[in-house]
């Protein structure tokens, strides 16, 4: 099914909401830039941070003053006087500068909100599942046609860059589960045919499989878009890279352990060990240098991510990074832009 078929489904699913587009007067108010920006940016953060989202309340703004909304004042007001007033009242009438014009406590119902919004006041209702706007007696429940507050809240719960270590812990649990774990390893019947076969025998092209699996997990579980295989000026390729809050990150993926030969005829003679990872450090630093020095781009951090797929696991021996003593030109990049992430342990569970 093509993406456009999915789009048609979405249009069908939101059929009633799109009626708003035909309702010019309401549409102009609901889609007015200041209101949309308020509802898109300032209010979700406020609503998302509420401890008790089961407590309902509403703000009211005058329709004819929307153009005067001082959006920069919104966040401060929400954090101070408005929050304070919500302790005693659930209906707050706001001036365009977000000062409180009046506040009261009412038994908020759908009908009451519809009725209150008929006298030139837009009602912004905060319910359990998100924020609704009521304009001229009508709820515009899915003002953002394709997403809702739950999607937004879920996105917010995804890992931030500061939480990358926790994210990788979660990932470690994920890849050691049945149904996922098998994707990495040769099956038991094949292993039986091989001599000196380790328990953890990865499939051919292990690095690619591990990297692509990690990429998919990061894209689903962090707040960022990770991409792969960016070519540097020297023709070498970054494994993974992303931009988080304006900062650039690269992520080099390495692994320790054994894999099978390309024709499945035996265990590959290459044993990826601590030395491989130390080379991985140098490789990452060379990439960092290439990006910063040769390509003249910004880079916040180059991360090294190691899968430990050895049968017998021990801490990675970086030899106190003494090997960098011979790589003086890389040292500044190590000091300022490099981080080795905690290794990800992976074992065949079959």
């Amino acid at each position: 099914m093509s993406e456009l078929d999915d789009v048609k489904k979405l249009f069908k699913a939101h059929k009633d909401d799109f009626a708003l587009l035909a309702d010019t007067e309401r549409n102009e108010i609901a889609n007015s830039f200041p209101l949309k920006k308020l509802v898109n940016i300032a209010l979700p953060a406020f609503w998302g941070a509420r401890v008790n989202q089961g407590t309902h309340f509403a703000f009211f703004l005058a329709e004819d003053e929307l153009d005067k909304l001082a959006l920069t004042e919104a966040t401060t007001a929400l954090d101070t006087c408005i929050s304070e007033s919500l302790k005693t009242h659930n209906c707050i009438y706001l001036a365009p500068d977000f000062s409180i014009v009046a506040s009261k406590h009412l038994n908020l119902t759908r009908t009451l909100l519809e009725s209150l919004s008929e006298s030139g006041q837009i009602a912004i209702f905060f319910g359990e599942t998100g924020i609704d706007i009521v304009v001229k007696g009508k709820f515009i429940t899915n003002h953002n046609f394709f997403y809702n507050e739950l999607d937004r809240a879920k996105y917010k719960r995804n890992f931030s860059m500061d939480q990358l270590p926790e994210c990788l812990k979660e990932y470690e649990r994920y890849i050691n589960q049945p149904g996922v774990n098998e994707a990495f390893f040769c099956d038991r019947s094949l292993k039986k045919t091989l001599s000196d076969c380790p328990k953890n025998l990865l499939k051919y092209q292990a690095e690619k499989t591990l990297r692509d699996n990690l990429l998919e997990f990061l894209n689903l579980n962090t707040q960022y878009t990770f991409l792969k295989e960016a070519e540097l000026n020297n023709q070498r390729e970054l494994d993974l890279y992303t931009e988080a809050d304006g900062k650039h990150y690269i992520l080099e993926v390495k692994w320790m352990g054994r894999s099978i030969k390309s024709d499945n005829s035996g265990v590959s003679s290459t044993n990826y060990t601590n030395a491989t990872i130390r080379n991985g450090v140098i490789q990452t630093l060379e990439y960092i240098r290439e990006v910063i020095k040769e390509m003249n781009h910004n880079l916040h951090c180059g991360l090294l991510c190691v899968f430990d797929v050895r049968d017998e696991k021990t801490e990675i021996d970086y030899d106190d990074f003494k090997f960098l003593d011979e790589q003086k030109d890389l040292k500044p990049y190590y000091d300022q832009h490099f981080k080795a992430l905690n290794k990800i342990n992976l074992d065949c569970i079959a």
């Binding site: 789009v7 997403y147 996105y155 995804n158 894209n219």
Partner: peptide
């Protein structure tokens, strides 16, 4: 609408 649609994909972590 197109930007809202793409934004929904961003929130849902789809490409």
């Amino acid at each position: 609408l197109y930007f809202e649609y793409v934004f929904s994909k961003i929130l849902k972590r789809e490409n």
